[in-house]
Design a protein around this nucleic acid. Structure first.
Length: 1050
RNA sequence: GGGCCCGUAGCUUAGCCAGGUGGAGCGCUCGGCUGAUAACCGAGAGGUCUUGCGUUCAAAUCGCAACGGGCCCA
C-alpha cells in the first residue's frame, strides 16, 4: 500500500536512501544485473588524495555519476573503478610539513622507509575521508575496489609502460634544462609550475669586447645570479645594431646594442650625450667578449665568449640576450647547436658549487645583490632597477623555481607528435573545440616529457644501469625483477625497498643498480586506463574493455590527464586510450573569480549539502550552465533548485492521502489507462511527460546535461505543479469511486512513476524515495531500486503534439483572463458571466472548442464564447474619431455639424457600413473611410487582455446566480480555513453555523446551502441572518464588507 | 606575448552554429489563492545584448579590434 509523505527533508531523506543502498548493496546489484549488456568502460580521473573535496571535484563526480546511471539504465554494462592519485611531491610536502622538515637532508636522516610509510598513511587516510564525501553526494562508482596508484599492480602498469617506451627507443636519458625547485631539490614538470607576479632585479650589464678598448656589448637580465654561468650573447640576425659613443659625466665609452632600443638604454644608464658611430646588421656582429665576472669565477676564463645569432631574440631591452646554457631552455638549445659548454655552477639545493669560484656556497637568489655589487665595482653595471613580472614557482611549496641543466629521463613524445594529432581526430570530443582547437594546440607545442623526479614518494623508475659499462635495462614487472635479481621476497615496490636490489649486467656481468629517481606523478595517472584493468598482471580483461569509452574532466586537464594518458598510450599501444571525452568547466565564485583559500571565497560541497542537501547541489551544477562553461556559484540559484525539488515533493505527496483513502491500488495501471475515460488534460500531461523523455534522450546523446535537466525542472514547475495539479484538484476530493477521479489518479500515477525514471540519473535520492513508495509499495516484485529499472523510452501512443499546442493556447487564455480580472479587481473565487475569445487563428478556435471545460474551470466562467477570426465582438462599442484634416475641406462650414452628428450616431453602425460599403450617410452628408478612424469601446463591466494569438474579454457583470456563488465560496474558504486551524482530517465531518448580518446576502448564500455543506463536509449546516453560532471554534469575518460569524465543531 | 572559452535585466541565464520586433528564473513592487499551506499562483517595473569598427536591406547572432573574466602555455 501507498504511504503518506511528510514535508521534504532532504538531509533525512538522503541519509535514509544511503542506508537503504548500503543494506541491499544497491550499487553492486545494479552493475551485476547488467553484465550481459554492451560494455561501457569509464575511467575515473583520479583525484589527488590531499584534504577535502571542493566544489569542482563535486561537480566532476556528479557529472560522472549522472552519465553512468543513465548508461546503466540504458542497459550498459558499466565498468567504473574509482581512482586515487596517491603519489608525488604534494603529499611529500604535506608530510614534510607535519614532521617539520626543511630539506631532503631531514628526510634522509629520518629514514626514507619511515618517510614513505608516513606518505602512504597520509594518502590512505585521506582517501577514506574523500570517499565518504563523494558518497554523500550520492555518487556511485566502484568505491570498494578502487584503483590506487600506490598498489604494486598499479606500479607494474607504469613499469610495463616504461619498458615499452624503452623498446620503442622513446626513452632517453639526457642533460636538459629543467624547472627545478631548490627546496624540494627535484625537477618539476612544466605543469607543476605556477606563475605569480613578483618583483625582481632589472639590470643592464656591459660585457667588455675583446680587442677594442673601452667598448662593450650591453645585455639585460632579471637573474643576475646566472651571470657567473654566462657563455654567450645572442643577437637577432636581421635586427640593426649600432655602436654608440656615449658620454656620462665627461667620461666616454662605446656601447653596442639594437638601434631601436638605443634611447631607452642610454636613458637607463643616464648618459648625457651620444653619437652613433657605426651601424651593423645582427648577422655581421662577429665579436668576442671577456667574461664579466672572470676575476670571481676562475673557470669562466677557460671558456670562449662569443656573440651568436638566434631567432628568439626580441626587440626589447637591449636586443642582446645573455646566454647561460646551464640556466635557460633557449640558452641550452643555442648551446647545443653551437657546441658551447653547458656550464652550470649551481647545485640541486640552489647554491653555487665549487665551479662558481668565490660564490661557492651562496644561495643563488641571495647572490643577486652581491653580483650587482661586484659588477658595479668593476664598472660593468650600466643600470640597475626593479621590475614586476610573472615568475614561476613550485606549485606545491611556492618556492621560486630556477632553471638547471641536469641529467633526466625523458619520453621522446615529440617523435610521435604527428601520430598523436591523428589520434586526437579519432576521439569524439564534447564540445568539439576541446579536441580540435584546445588539445591539438597543446600537443603541437609540447616538448619531450621529463618523467624523472629526484624524490622518494612515487613509483620508482624501473631502470637499472650497469655500474661498469653503463648498459641499461628496464624491468617491466615485479616477476621480471625477481627473476633477474634472485630477490624472492619482494613485498613492496616503493623506495627504499627496490633501491638495494641489484642485477647482473647481461653485457659485462658487472653489477647493475637502479637509478635513484622516481616517476613524475603525472606518469602515474597516465597509465590509468590499463592499470585499472590490472594490466599487465591480467592480460585478458584489457582485451575485452580497452580503450575507454568515455572520460570527463575539467579543462585544466587538457595539459594534464588528457595529455599524459594520450602520451603514455601512444608509447604503449600506438593509439588513443579513450574514445570520447567530455571537457567540463571550473567552479568560480559569484564574481566569476576562481575560488581560492587566499581570497576566502571558497564554498565547500559539505556546506551546500548541510543547507539544502546533495540533491539540490546535484541538479544545480547539472542544470546551471553548459558543462564546458565555467560555473559561477550562486547560493540564490541553489535555492531556486531546492525550491523546485520541494515543489516536486509536494506534487508527489499531494495526492497520496486521497489515494490512500480511496484504497487506490494501481496494479494494472496500463490496462486502466486504456479503459478509463481520460480527460483531454490527462492525455495532455501524458503526452508532455513522454515528450520530455525524448528531450532528455536527445540531450544525453551529446552529454548536454544542462539541456537534459532544464526541461525536467520546467516540466515539474510549469506542466505538473502549475497546471495539471490545479486542474485535477476538484476531481481528487470527489468521494465516490468515480471513473473520472480514477482517470486522474491513474494518469498522475503514471506520470509520477515515469518522472522518477527520467530523473533518476540526476536526482538519485529523491527518485529512489518516490519509487519506493509509488512502485515498491504496490508491486513487491518490481526491481528493488529505481536504479535497477530500465530506462523507459517515450510511449509514442501518448504523444499528441497537437494537443500540447492547444493546451498552450488555453494556458495563455487563462493567464490573459486573470490579467483582465485583475484590472477590475474581480477575484478568481467569483465566477464571471462569460469569457469571449477573439482569436487570430484557427488553432485558437480548435483549442477553445476542444478544451472548453478546462478553460471554463480555470477561468471560473459561466460561459465561454469564441468569435471567428477577425470578428469583432458585438458587445464592444465603437468610438468614431473624426479626421479633421479630411472632414474640414470636404464639408467646409458644415464640418462642425457633421462632427457633432458623428458623435451622437451609433458607432457600430458607422463602422459596419464603412467596412462594407466604404461610406456612411449622415443627415449632414456622406462620410467616407478616410474621414474617420475607429476605436473599440469596452463597456465598464468588461475587461480585456491580449495573448499571443488573440484578445480575451472578461464580462464581470454580476447576476444573482454569480453573487450567490461568490459569497458562498467566500464562506466555504473561511470554513476550510477554520477546519485547518482545528487540524481536522480531510475526511472528518463537521457541524457548522454561519450568521450573516445582511439579509440579502444571507438569502443568496442560503440558496447554496447543499453545495456549501458538501464542500466543507458538514453533516449539519445552519445559515441565516440570526443563527446561533457555537462550536469548538468561532470566528468573526468581514466578507466584502459583510459581517459574518462562523462556528464549527466535530 | 600566444591558444581556447566566456561577457545578454540588480543576480543566474536562453537565444548565437543556420542574421529578420531579445525569452526565462531569482530578487523587487503590486495583487491573488488558502483541502500542496513554514507551500502555491498572477501581473508590473527592469535590457546602450561589454565597447568600437566592418559585412548586410537587416547584427545579440557573422568578421575584425579593444576591454574584462576563466583555463592553459610563453
Amino acid at each position: 500500500m501507498l504511504k503518506e509523505a511528510g514535508q521534504y527533508d532532504a538531509k533525512l531523506l538522503e541519509q535514509n536512501i544511503h542506508k537503504f543502498w548500503d543494506e541491499i548493496d544497491a550499487y553492486s546489484q545494479v552493475r551485476e544485473q547488467r553484465t550481459k549488456g554492451p560494455k561501457f568502460f569509464f575511467v575515473d580521473g583520479p583525484p589527488y588524495t590531499t584534504g577535502r573535496i571542493h566544489l569542482g571535484t563535486a561537480w566532476n563526480k556528479i557529472i560522472k555519476d549522472s552519465i553512468l546511471r543513465y548508461k546503466s539504465m540504458n542497459g550498459f554494462h558499466v565498468l567504473d573503478r574509482a581512482g586515487w592519485d596517491m603519489h608525488g611531491l604534494p603529499i611529500e610536502v604535506k608530510v614534510e610539513g607535519v614532521l617539520g622538515f626543511k630539506s631532503k637532508k631531514d628526510i634522509e636522516k629520518y629514514g626514507v622507509g619511515n618517510f614513505v610509510a608516513k606518505c602512504k598513511e597520509f594518502a590512505l587516510s585521506h582517501r577514506d575521508e574523500m570517499t565518504l564525501q563523494f558518497q554523500n553526494l550520492g555518487v556511485w562508482l566502484n568505491w570498494k575496489d578502487p584503483y590506487m596508484t600506490l598498489r604494486d599492480e598499479y606500479i607494474e602498469a607504469a613499469w610495463w609502460t616504461l619498458k615499452k617506451a624503452h623498446e620503442k627507443k622513446l626513452l632517453e636519458k639526457g642533460l636538459r634544462v629543467v624547472n627545478w625547485c631548490p627546496r624540494c631539490e627535484t625537477a618539476i614538470a612544466d605543469s607543476e609550475v605556477e606563475y605569480s607576479e613578483v618583483s625582481d632585479p632589472s639590470v643592464y650589464i656591459k660585457f667588455p669586447i675583446v680587442g677594442e678598448e673601452n667598448t662593450y656589448i650591453v645585455i639585460w637580465t632579471t637573474t643576475p645570479w646566472t651571470i657567473p654561468a654566462n657563455i654567450a650573447v645572442a643577437v637577432h640576425p636581421s635586427f640593426e645594431y649600432v655602436k654608440v659613443r656615449a658620454v656620462k659625466n665627461g667620461k666616454e665609452e662605446f656601447l653596442i646594442m639594437a638601434h631601436e632600443l638605443l634611447k631607452n638604454v642610454l636613458k637607463q644608464g643616464r648618459y648625457q650625450e651620444h653619437e652613433v658611430i657605426e651601424t651593423i646588421l645582427g648577422e655581421d656582429l662577429k665579436i668576442a667578449y671577456k667574461a664579466p665576472l672572470g676575476h670571481k669565477v676562475p673557470k669562466q676564463n677557460e671558456f670562449p665568449h662569443n656573440v651568436y645569432m638566434a631567432d628568439f631574440v626580441t626587440a626589447e631591452n637591449t636586443g642582446c640576450v645573455h646566454i647561460a646554457p646551464g640556466h635557460g631552455i633557449d640558452d641550452f638549445e643555442l648551446g647545443m647547436k653551437h657546441k658551447l659548454p653547458i656550464f652550470c655552477p649551481v647545485g640541486p639545493d640552489g647554491k653555487y658549487t665549487e665551479e662558481a669560484g668565490q660564490y661557492k656556497g651562496m644561495n643563488v637568489k641571495e647572490a643577486n645583490k652581491t653580483i650587482i655589487d661586484d659588477l658595479t665595482e668593476n664598472g660593468l653595471l650600466l643600470a640597475s632597477g626593479k621590475i614586476s613580472h610573472r615568475y614561476g614557482n613550485c606549485w606545491r611549496c611556492k618556492t621560486p623555481i630556477i632553471y638547471l641543466a641536469t641529467e633526466q629521463w625523458f619520453l621522446r613524445v615529440t617523435d610521435i607528435k604527428e601520430k598523436m594529432l591523428d589520434e586526437i581526430n579519432k576521439v569524439k570530443w564534447y564540445p568539439d573545440w576541446a579536441g580540435s582547437a584546445r588539445f591539438a594546440d597543446w600537443v603541437r607545442g609540447s616538448r619531450d616529457w621529463c618523467i624523472s623526479r629526484q624524490r622518494y614518494w612515487g613509483i620508482p623508475i624501473p631502470v637499472w644501469v650497469c655500474d661498469f659499462c653503463g648498459e641499461i635495462e628496464v624491468m617491466g614487472t615485479m616477476e621480471e625483477l625477481k627473476n633477474r635479481s634472485a630477490v624472492k621476497d619482494l613485498s613492496d615496490l616503493h623506495r627504499p625497498y627496490v633501491d638495494n636490489i641489484h642485477i647482473k649486467c647481461r653485457k659485462c656481468e658487472n653489477r647493475m643498480s637502479r637509478v635513484p629517481d622516481v616517476f613524475d606523478v603525472w606518469f602515474d595517472s597516465a597509465v590509468a586506463s590499463w592499470a585499472t584493468l590490472n594490466f599487465p598482471r591480467d592480460e585478458k580483461t584489457i582485451k575485452e574493455w580497452w580503450p575507454a569509452d568515455f572520460i570527463t574532466e575539467g579543462h585544466d586537464q587538457t595539459r594534464g590527464w588528457f595529455y599524459s594518458q594520450m602520451g603514455a598510450s601512444m608509447v604503449s599501444f600506438g593509439k588513443a586510450p579513450y574514445k570520447s571525452v567530455l571537457m567540463h568547466g571550473f567552479t568560480l565564485d559569484t564574481e566569476g573569480k576562481k575560488m581560492s583559500k587566499s581570497l576566502g571565497n571558497v564554498v565547500s560541497p559539505d556546506e551546500v549539502i548541510s543547507k539544502v542537501g546533495a540533491e539540490s547541489l546535484r541538479l544545480y551544477v547539472l542544470s546551471q550552465n553548459a558543462p564546458w562553461d565555467d560555473l559561477k556559484f550562486s547560493w540564490d540559484e541553489v535555492g531556486t533548485v531546492h525550491r523546485m525539488l520541494n515543489i516536486l515533493w509536494n506534487v508527489y505527496r499531494f495526492p497520496l492521502p486521497y489515494m490512500i483513502l480511496d484504497n487506490f491500488n494501481p496494479v494494472d495501471s496500463d490496462e486502466k489507462l486504456a479503459s478509463l475515460p481520460l480527460r483531454l488534460e490527462d492525455r495532455w500531461i501524458l503526452s508532455r511527460v513522454n515528450s520530455l523523455i525524448k528531450k532528455v534522450e536527445t540531450a544525453m546523446s551529446e552529454y548536454n546535461l544542462h539541456k537534459a535537466t532544464r526541461p525536467i525542472s520546467e516540466f515539474i514547475l510549469e506542466d505538473l505543479s502549475r497546471w495539471y495539479i490545479q486542474l485535477i484538484r476538484p476531481r481528487t476530493w470527489r468521494e465516490a469511486n468515480d471513473p473520472d477521479k480514477l482517470a486522474a489518479y491513474y494518469t498522475l500515477y503514471e506520470v509520477l512513476v515515469t518522472l522518477t525514471k527520467v530523473m533518476a540519473p540526476f536526482a538519485p535520492h529523491l527518485t529512489e524515495e518516490m519509487y519506493g513508495n509509488l512502485v515498491r509499495n504496490i508491486h513487491p516484485d518490481a526491481p528493488q531500486s529505481v536504479h535497477m529499472c530500465n530506462w523507459q523510452p517515450a510511449k509514442e501512443k501518448f504523444i499528441d503534439v497537437e494537443l500540447e499546442k492547444r493546451m498552450d493556447v488555453i494556458r495563455e487564455i487563462v493567464e490573459a483572463s486573470s490579467n483582465a480580472r485583475q484590472k477590475l479587481k474581480r477575484k478568481l473565487r467569483w465566477p464571471v458571466k462569460r469569457i469571449v475569445v477573439a482569436p487570430k487563428n484557427e488553432i485558437v478556435i480548435e483549442a477553445v472548442l476542444s478544451l472548453e471545460s478546462v478553460l471554463k474551470e480555470q477561468t471560473n466562467a459561466k460561459e465561454i464564447v469564441s468569435l471567428k477570426t477577425g470578428e469583432t465582438w458585438d458587445q464592444l462599442g465603437v468610438e468614431v474619431l473624426p479626421n479633421h484634416a479630411a472632414l474640414g475641406p470636404a464639408f467646409k462650414k458644415d464640418a462642425g455639424k457633421v462632427i457633432a452628428q458623428l458623435k451622437s450616431a451609433d458607432g457600430r453602425a458607422i463602422k459596419k457600413s464603412i467596412l462594407e460599403t466604404g461610406s456612411f450617410e449622415l443627415k449632414a452628408g456622406v462620410i467616407t473611410a478616410d474621414m474617420v478612424t475607429f476605436k473599440d469601446l469596452i463597456p465598464p463591466a468588461i475587461a480585456s487582455a491580449i495573448f499571443s494569438a488573440g484578445d480575451v474579454y472578461v464580462d464581470t457583470e454580476l447576476t444573482r446566480e454569480i453573487e450567490s456563488e461568490g459569497y458562498s465560496r467566500e464562506v466555504i474558504r473561511r470554513i476550510q480555513d477554520m477546519r485547518k486551524e482545528l487540524d481536522l482530517a480531510v475526511e472528518e465531518e463537521i457541524r457548522a453555523a454561519v450568521e450573516i448580518k445582511d439579509d440579502r446576502v444571507a438569502v443568496l448564500v442560503l440558496e447554496m446551502k447543499d453545495f456549501i455543506a458538501g464542500e466543507v463536509r458538514a453533516k449539519s449546516l445552519m445559515i441565516g441572518p440570526e443563527v446561533e453560532v457555537d462550536g469548538e471554534l468561532v470566528k468573526d469575518w468581514d466578507v466584502e464588507d459583510v459581517k459574518m460569524r462562523m462556528g464549527i465543531g466535530r
